[in-house]
Design a protein around this nucleic acid. Sequence first.
DNA 1: AGCTTGTTTCGATATTCGTTAAGGCAGACC
DNA 2: GGTCTGCCTTAACGAATATCGAAACAAGCT
Lengths: 125, 125
Amino acid sequence: MSNQERLLVELTDAVGCCSPLVREPLSAEQAVELSRLFKAMGDPVRLRLLSLIASHEGGEACVCDLSGVFDLTGPTISHHLKVLREAGLISGERRGTWIYYRIEPDALRRLSAVLVPDVAAAGPA
Amino acid sequence: MSNQERLLVELTDAVGCCSPLVREPLSAEQAVELSRLFKAMGDPVRLRLLSLIASHEGGEACVCDLSGVFDLTGPTISHHLKVLREAGLISGERRGTWIYYRIEPDALRRLSAVLVPDVAAAGPA
DNA sequence: AGCTTGTTTCGATATTCGTTAAGGCAGACC
DNA sequence: GGTCTGCCTTAACGAATATCGAAACAAGCT
């Protein structure tokens, strides 16, 4: 068993009871903030965009790498990227001709922090 | 920083490099299926409903436990519960007068599996 | 029957998704 | 400098979908 695996097992044992989602009701404010993230990911095109950007070489991708994948026009891709940007899930930077997008790790961290303990609950009783 | 907090940080750091979402592009089919879950959770009321049910005593709650929390009418709560039900996130069962809702762990597990390296598979060797 | 609990139906309003057309920015070329 | 061309965004608009409440409906208990 690797160090990381051991760590993960320790974690799942340690926080199984303490997920923000499962331990106690979310506050209205927490729910509003979190739902913005979930909502932005609640579209198949945006989920794939997110995944394409994240898995692209160097952790970043320009729009030209993305728009060819879908059967959608440029403005539509641009719109979905804007939704992801405004949710804080990605950030864009212009370098010369192209605009490069990359993942904002903090946003994904917040999401997984809500969900991970449920994985733990599914583990050894 | 507590032991548990340190562990959580370790795990969430792993999300940035190893989660399925980040490792390779999602297929169109995966994206459609996953986005249904995210979409259902993309509303603050539904997120709180989910959390209220999950954190309620015995892991289940009747609608009467839920509707009082919000400034919304019964039919609206019923509507949101239906959305969660059709997304497979919760299930309802009638017992006498009341209908009890509980979390469907599989759905949350699928969500976690996208964001987080395979924690469950990292069980005791 | 009457009462309680929860859902369904229907209608009004608001938001989202995708298109076409137009605008902004950077580089190439004269 | 001026004007092309390519890349991406913004603006404007229609169609589809989501959100919510009032009224009507179903299911169970006394």
